[in-house]
Amino acid sequence: MHILIGGYTKHESDGIYQFDFIGAGNEAHLEQRRNVVKVGGPTYFQKDGDFIFTIKNEDGHGGIATYENGRLVSQLLHEGSSPAYVGINKDKHLLYTANYHTGVLAVISYDEKGQLTLLDQVKHESRALGPRPEQVDSAHPHYFDQTPGGHLVSCDLGQDRVDFYDFDGQHLTHLASYQNEDGFGTRHLVFDPSGSYFYVAGELSSQVNVVKFDEENWMFQNVATCSTIPASWDQHNGAAAIRLSKDGKFLYVSNRGHDSIAVFEVQDDHSLKLIQRISTYGEFPRDFNWDEDEKYVVAANQNSNNATLYQRASDGTLALLVKDIAVPEGTRVLFTD
């Protein structure tokens, strides 16, 4: 098993790094850090076989690129900022990108050689911007990926909104929207195993909103909202990554500022009960992820250039195994074979 970590390349980083996962239980640790893809700004990426599909910036241009065994295969770059998120459908060979700065959502196909083709894109117009300073300039889609029913969904931080789309193979069509509270800062979401609920991370409010969801009739019910940080916390914080265990019983959210992972137990009514907040032993944890069996978790701390390894217990809680794993400017974590 390996772990890939990539992120910004503003200081020391050369792109995407790979670690070997060694041992098990309390002896588990990461070894042999090596730069496997030299690329500018791989703040998010996906993997399919030998292909890594990554965000890329180069000489004032941004976009997405395919690398195979460290070699550039294909790229789609445009003038200006690169996307913030990449989703993937491995069965259909489709990628979904959300560009925080330009407001553009895109669907891109890739073939068996990794060649990329833009299929369609839409731009979020700035119609109902939120009240916070991070929102008043424009729409800011931060997430674009699949729904349980085969549609697509985006999170717009600038407009506190979740938008749903149909994609017929050629064109994107808007279907419905769910509106979060003003200033929520809609960033990322996850769906429960039944597909009847989703959990939205609010970056600017440091909250999670639980929503009951009917994908056939596009009906939404606001179930509950809870904080990811202590009530006494009065410094800056931004909620970032959100993960739900495959059994739907435990939800995890990273806090950039409080520098922690909040662990929630999902109740019978799908509301959330906080059961743990654990330090990430570093600064600004943008992403964390786990292995296929969800036994181990790695969090990347962007500002302190380190990652942290945890073991996950059957009750959902995390226990520290190793901290201070050196890796520069990490914003994306992915376990691989």
Rank of each mutant, 00 (worst) to 15 (best):
S254E: 03
S254L: 03
S245R: 05
E216G: 06
T280F: 07
N306I: 03
E294H: 10
K246N: 15
V266K: 02
Y296C: 02
I261P: 00
S232D: 15
N255R: 01
N303C: 04
N237T: 09
V223T: 11
E294S: 09
Q311S: 15
I261W: 07
G316Q: 02
E292S: 10
R312W: 06
F250W: 11
Y296L: 12
I275C: 03
N301L: 05
E283V: 14
Y252R: 08
L251R: 05
S279V: 08
L274H: 01
P230N: 09
I275G: 00
S260Q: 02
S227D: 09
K249Q: 15
E216I: 13
E283N: 13
V298I: 15
A299C: 14
K246Y: 11
S304F: 12
N303S: 08
H236A: 04
R286I: 06
A224F: 04
L309V: 11
H258T: 09
N255Q: 02
Y296K: 14
N303T: 05
H270V: 08
D269T: 06
T228A: 06
H270Y: 09
E265I: 01
G257Q: 08
R286L: 04
P230E: 00
T225P: 09
H258Q: 06
L244I: 08
W290C: 07
N305C: 00
A241H: 12
V253W: 11
K249I: 00
D269R: 04
A262N: 07
F220T: 10
D268L: 04
W218H: 12
R243F: 07
D268N: 14
N301W: 12
F284K: 14
D287H: 15
S227W: 03
D247G: 11
